[in-house]
């Protein structure tokens, strides 16, 4: 079964600390900030069963950022989307890294209650991880070197970092 990746801020999803104020069958509100919809649509990336495209998806993400910084993400099974009653569509990702565009997905017609249902499941069982800046820079520099990403398509801060890394 495919899985999906969404960029998050790890501290918002922490289960440690005093959460006794959160009612049963509920979740803290902070994670919802990482699930902000636009036009009732939520952007995600599909991850292959063997995780073989995670690096490519990370490059796709950083290629749209203002600067190369560490990325936190959450990964979860596709079943959680269906369980929340949400429809998933394949749409080309808006990233200069073309090979990864096909892995982009939109969750569409996302209502508030469906979003909360998904968030509750993600909070309970999503796998969270961080990829550090130096590793992201290595991946992105590799993509530029191999000609898959045009340096000029990157934002100024990212372009400067990659150019330094390339020694140009």
């Amino acid at each position: 079964m495919p899985r999906f990746l969404r960029k998050i801020r790890m501290s918002s999803w922490a289960k440690e600390g005093n959460l006794s104020w959160v009612p049963n069958d509920d979740l803290p509100a902070d994670p919802l900030a990482d699930l902000a919809t636009l036009g009732n649509t939520l952007s995600l990336w599909q991850i292959e069963d063997d995780n073989s495209n995670i690096d490519a998806v990370i490059v796709a993400l950083v290629a749209t950022m203002d600067s190369v910084q560490s990325i936190d993400y959450i990964i979860f099974p596709a079943g959680l989307i269906a369980a929340a009653g949400i429809e998933c569509r394949q749409t080309l990702g808006k990233t200069p890294f073309e090979p990864a565009q096909k892995w982009h997905r939109d969750l569409v017609s996302v209502s508030a209650l469906r979003l909360v249902a998904l968030a509750k499941d993600l909070f309970a069982s999503g796998e969270k991880a961080r990829i550090p800046r130096h590793e992201i820079l290595r991946l992105l520099t590799g993509a530029v070197k191999s000609g898959h990403v045009d340096l000029d398509a990157l934002k100024e801060g990212v372009r400067a970092d990659v150019a330094r890394s390339l020694g140009t």
Partner: peptide
């Protein structure tokens, strides 16, 4: 403000 990693 809502902040996002890597975004100014």
């Amino acid at each position: 403000e809502v902040f996002e990693d890597g975004m100014e």
